[in-house]
């Protein structure tokens, strides 16, 4: 029993140590926004001696921040809706319509998960430019959807195939066609997987950096990831301002994480471990 007790203590100390490693940088960032530059030098991680609220105030009053957040929101929402709709419809053709050769088409989509976004980025850039989509949200949204489809289709197909087959038969007897079955039965029954995929698509899109960097030049259209880098470029050494800005941009992600935690974990474990 004594040994067991010791074990537990070792375990808790170990976990605390790692929790410290994870949390200290985050706390330092949040608290840093309340400090003067001088204090930031002498006391980078502790509580501020002198709380300065003006840095956070300035950031909150910065229209650029809000504009970039709004842009990110628009881009992510469009990506979300299109990926969910396109992914679910496509997965349904594999799970229920099962046309001749559907396995090959499915494998073709899955290939898309195998290589990084960056490999074709230059031709993609040329394509977006030739389509006149540079400096527009569509230029970011459409490739994001295209790249998000593979994972969405994989997860949706697996889920749809697990719906009881008799449900489809019952619906057919009730007079439901394929499209109707999809919209009236499959989609309402798929909320867990829609949420899981949705959370992932949303987070990926919200955090995307490379694609908007390549596609968007006009800083009015910048999503927050580009915005934050631009802000940091302007106020390079005024760390208290930069940290305040960083902390505020983290808030939506944090709030979202707390709300959607269940689905994030489900997506990881369901999607990842089975995948």
């Amino acid at each position: 029993m004594k040994k067991r007790f010791m074990n537990d203590w070792v375990k808790i100390c170990y976990l605390m140590l790692i929790a410290g490693f994870v949390l200290v940088p985050l706390l330092a960032a949040v608290l840093g926004g309340f400090k003067s530059l001088g204090e930031l030098q002498s006391n980078p991680i502790g509580l501020p001696n002198n709380w300065e609220f003006e840095h956070y105030g300035a950031v909150l009053n910065n229209p650029f921040l809000w504009n970039s957040m709004k842009n990110s929101f628009v881009i992510s929402s469009m990506t979300l809706i299109l990926t969910l709709l396109g992914g679910a419809m496509t997965a349904f053709t594999f799970s229920h319509i099962r046309f001749v050769g559907h396995r090959y088409v499915y494998s073709y989509f899955l290939l898309g998960m195998m290589f990084p976004f960056a490999t074709g980025i230059l031709p993609l850039f040329i394509k977006i430019r030739d389509l006149g989509l540079l400096d527009s949200f569509y230029g970011v949204v459409i490739p994001q959807v295209a790249f998000g489809l593979a994972m969405a289709i994989l997860l949706f197909k697996t889920f749809f195939e697990q719906l009881p087959a008799e449900l489809f038969d019952a619906a057919r007897v009730d007079g439901c066609g394929y499209a109707r079955f999809f919209f009236e039965i499959v989609i309402p029954l798929s909320t867990p997987i829609l949420a899981t995929v949705g959370v992932f698509v949303l987070v990926t899109s919200w955090n995307n950096y490379l694609l908007p960097l390549v596609v968007l030049n006009n800083s009015d259209l910048y999503p927050w990831t580009l915005g934050i880098m631009q802000y940091q470029g302007e106020f390079a050494v005024e760390w208290n301002k930069v940290l305040a800005y960083v902390s505020i941009t983290v808030l939506p992600a944090l709030a979202f994480f707390i709300v959607a935690q269940k689905y994030i974990v489900a997506g990881l474990t369901g999607g990842a471990v089975k995948g």
Partner: peptide
């Protein structure tokens, strides 16, 4: 039967085109 082919024609091509055009072709 049950609008199977129509549904297929409506559901598959959008994603297929998008994927081909923006993922496979650039490659």
């Amino acid at each position: 039967q049950g609008g199977r082919l129509w549904t297929l024609l409506l559901f598959l091509p959008p994603a297929l085109c998008l994927f081909t055009l923006f993922v496979v072709v650039p490659l």
